[in-house]
């Protein structure tokens, strides 16, 4: 516990959260709306970081899990199921899909896991188009209900959700289970020889990652009122989730949230540059990734030895 209060990550997260909680007093509804989306993306990235940074598996298809959660929740809602059961169903669906994908994928070593996840996204995009009757196809799915019509309420739901997810994922990453997970990621042979069932631990990491991705995906649908391939499932969205995590600082969980907020914030701040803005944000991301491998959080905690 003492270590916790001495770590700068803790104080950064705490101060950041307090500022975020007070923000609705100050800023416009438009900004709040942006941040709301950013927070959900923060959860996507944190969930991704658990898998990559700790279990050592690169999931190129985070949007497969997100999409499962989002579409399952959205479609059910269309049949009159109330919002909250739909969200729960979304999370469950993502977990089931995650297990179905991970079980065979974890058997293969190295880059093949990543490729499998990538293929899963492509298949999903196809299915959404093929079953346009259920999914709204390329136009997108419109859901009847929303979380709330009040911008502040939506903002707080997203923020609290991100903070709670962050605390859980961070605590997990620092716990003994997190250590075993890192060992499984870095050297599965050694981890096995030490008595750890590597597959079990990696699968659990995948399930947890899927759960949070699916939950966040479902919540996001009920915030936006729609789900579409372009906003939730496409490869580009997945890339954004990954870049955010890497940019914020790999293996830190908290950094992933920071990265997401930064990406969406920077995109907005640079909007006056029009088409150029994407280019500038990408360039910044590239520079950070190349020259500060520990990411944004690494810059903020420089000089501190954190294990």
């Amino acid at each position: 516990m003492r270590n916790l209060f001495r770590s700068r990550v803790f104080w950064i997260a705490l101060i950041g959260s307090i500022v975020a909680l007070l923000l609705p007093l100050k800023v416009s509804g438009y900004i709040l709306g942006l941040l709301t989306v950013a927070y959900y993306f923060g959860v996507f990235s944190m969930a991704w970081d658990l898998l990559f940074g700790f279990a050592g598996e690169v999931n190129f298809g985070p949007t497969f899990l997100i999409g499962l959660g989002a579409y399952a929740a959205g479609i059910l809602n269309g049949y009159g199921v109330p919002v909250y059961p739909c969200i729960a169903a979304g999370a469950v669906m993502a977990v089931i899909g995650g297990v179905v994908l991970a079980l065979p994928a974890l058997r293969v070593r190295g880059p093949y896991f990543g490729l499998t996840t990538l293929v899963a996204v492509l298949i999903m995009m196809n299915l959404i188009v093929v079953f346009a009757g259920f999914t709204g196809g390329e136009i997108g799915l419109t859901v009847p209900d929303v979380l709330s019509v009040n911008a502040d309420t939506n903002y707080y739901i997203a923020l609290i959700f991100m903070i709670v997810s962050g605390v859980i994922l961070y605590a997990l990453s620092r716990s003994p289970v997190g250590l075993i997970l890192q060992a499984s990621g870095q050297d599965p042979v050694e981890a096995g020889a030490l008595g750890f069932n590597v597959t079990k631990h990696k699968l659990t990491a995948f399930i947890i990652s899927a759960f949070f991705s699916g939950l966040a995906g479902a919540l996001l649908v009920f915030y936006m009122g729609t789900a579409s391939v372009g906003t939730l499932v496409s490869i580009a969205v997945g890339v954004q989730v990954i870049i955010a995590a890497v940019l914020g600082g790999r293996r830190t969980i908290i950094g992933a949230a920071l990265g997401s907020i930064f990406l969406i914030g920077a995109g907005e701040a640079l909007r006056p540059f029009g088409e150029l803005s994407t280019l500038i944000v990408s360039a910044i991301a590239l520079l950070v990734i190349l020259f500060v491998p520990s990411g944004l959080l690494g810059i903020l905690t420089r000089g501190e030895e954190h294990a």
Binding site: P176, L179, I180, L194, F196
Partner: peptide, 14 residues
């Protein structure tokens, strides 16, 4: 320490 941990998913505190 790693070598001292049990193979459990529930060990959140050593």
């Amino acid at each position: 320490k790693l070598a001292l941990l049990p193979d459990s998913l529930l060990k959140l505190f050593a």
